[in-house]
Design a protein around this nucleic acid. Structure first.
Lengths: 331, 331
DNA sequence: CCTGGCACTCGGTAGCATCGAGTGCCAACG
DNA sequence: CGTTGGCACTCGATGCTACCGAGTGCCAGG
């Protein structure tokens, strides 16, 4: 789509702009490695790149900055994911280490990502439908309220309050728990909302309550972990931008659907308006799904300014996603 | 400490500055209700207030803004906590409503507080040591790893991974669970780390492992819920300020100790440097502890700019804290 | 086709006058 | 003697002008 010279000029502009955040002029580009023509030639080529929509000028007498299209081309054709040696080691050590509980590990993973990239990081926890039930227990809280506690194979604990149709004593709850256990262990979470009555008239109303209410909140089980908002703030100089991005990051449901949307479109990078969210017009999102037992169960990602260090971010997200998947597969 | 006229002038300055965020001049103050002297007199009094350290001038030809000392006096002597009718109703309805699980309720409570005040809100969850154990269960995850799942009376679920001294099968774990249950139910969490061996040589090593590891992470059980970072960002115009405040808010441990510190000093408001954190020099913190069964178990608070609406914030935090305590006492 | 050269553009900065909000002080007043 | 109107003064904000220089577009020569 772009001849080699144009491509190398575009690359130089993007890389320089990522570093300096300043419009880059023909002189700098001409001096860049990979470009061996004079600044005049660079000027001509840059003018062409501008009419083709890869670059833009903030004002007539300034250098060029990449457009979304420019970044997109850079990401698709020019960026080599690359992670420093030290960073790779850091990731490896992180996942070799022990972590107290899955939630802790996932928040620590976001910290790892913001540490690697200096951008805000998001990790979407593995959705639990896929997990195999390890244990089910009903615990009475109030006369007509019980807590359903489900432990999954990866150590995650799901809980739901269940309103009971009638008062139940501890013995009844224990029997119901036992019944649920024998039927549900080894199966996915969804089995709890499917029929498995006991035939015992003193238990069945209770089991029905569990069935109906266990599934109710099934798809909001996705946990989101976000850190590095302060790094994000450092990337922008307009408070208004920071504020609107924060507003997005605070809405976990929005974050989840945002990442899911990007992954579903088969992308691993969404730049500016590609995110589909107006407040993220000045942001770029780099994501990678991770798999457990060959199945995509979650996503990791970083959110930074459109002028983000894509090679680094792509590499970081990819390797962290992969290692996280491995780690979770072990259980 | 201040005669009535000085006090009413200070009040007028603080209230006006809270509204407008602009240095306030003698003219505005003279027109304020509660002040019935000319602007010249106000000028004289303001000069006195400045030498006494309650007000300051950004520059010679500008109005006055309150100092920390000025805010402090306002809060201690002049501010009447006041909450709009609509807001009170909103709080009441919020706590009359059902909530799915305690964590959900606590995050929703932070949302309520940011909604009421337009500042960032923090809720520190009830510490669980005080809670009575409702159920204990050991679930095997891997040959030598088990998950200790403890349900407390208020519906909170605590979990810890326990490294086992030897492989244990489900039957052994079940017996250990049963033993733990009979000894721990109705007692606080700390009992798990105290001696209650069975005398059964096949079980005791396992129980010892539970004892030693259950208490290990005992005091990091405090959960923190924060929302409204975007509102906070709207309060400041310097990105640098926003960034440094975000950095604080991201460190949950810091937030916890910050609030605890303020409460321990017997304060309900910490202004600027009173917070003891340099990055919060331009912030004020309004907190209220909440009690369950007469015991202080947690804290709610809001974090805003020093020029915050103290009467509103004080009232909101107080009523939310109180209602939250009630709600949690019911179980 | 590339390149050095050159005129041109335009944002940024500095210097300067102006404006006005707000002050401090003083003299007059009740 | 405390209060007040009046007034000179201060100083940030605003607007204007001149100037500088980074960077451009274009052209003529290699």
């Amino acid at each position: 789509m772009l001849d080699e010279r144009k491509a190398s000029i575009l690359r130089a502009v993007v890389e320089e702009y990522i570093k300096s955040a300043q419009p880059v002029g023909s002189g700098l580009v001409a001096d860049a490695p990979g470009v061996s023509v004079s600044s005049a030639t660079v000027r001509n080529e840059m003018a062409a790149l501008e009419t083709d929509g890869f670059l833009t000028q903030p004002h007539t007498s300034a250098g060029r900055i990449p457009t979304e299209k420019g970044y997109r081309y850079f990401v698709d054709a020019l960026a080599e994911p690359s992670l420093g040696r030290a960073a790779s080691v850091q990731v490896k050590e992180f996942f070799d280490q022990a972590h107290a509980g899955i939630e802790q590990m996932l928040t620590d993973t976001t910290r790892l990502l913001t540490g690697l990239t200096d951008y805000a990081a998001v990790v979407i926890g593995p959705h639990h439908e896929a997990g195999k039930i390890r244990s089910v227990q009903l615990v009475g809280l109030a006369p007509q309220v019980a807590l359903l506690v489900v432990v999954l194979g990866n150590g995650a604990v799901e809980k739901r309050t269940i309103d009971l149709p009638a008062e139940a004593n501890d013995e009844e709850l224990a029997r119901a728990s036992a019944h649920l256990n024998t039927h549900a262990i080894g199966h996915p979470l969804t089995t709890l909302s499917q029929a498995s009555l006991s035939g015992d008239p003193s238990l069945d109303p209770l089991l029905v309550a569990v069935q109906t209410q266990a599934g109710a909140a099934e798809d909001d089980t996705e946990q989101v972990f976000v850190t590095g908002a302060s790094r994000m703030a450092a990337s922008f100089e307009a408070v208004e931008t920071v504020r609107s991005v924060l507003t997005i990051l605070e809405q976990q449901l929005v974050v989840v659907s945002l990442l899911r949307d990007v992954v579903d479109r088969g992308l691993n990078v969404a730049i500016g308006s590609e995110t589909g969210m107006q407040p993220l017009a000045e942001c770029a999102l780099v994501v990678a799904p991770y798999t457990v037992d060959g199945e995509q169960v979650g996503t990791v990602g970083v959110l930074g300014p459109t002028r983000m260090n894509y090679p680094q971010a792509l590499a970081a997200v990819a390797v962290v996603g992969q290692r996280l998947g491995h780690r979770l597969s072990e259980g």
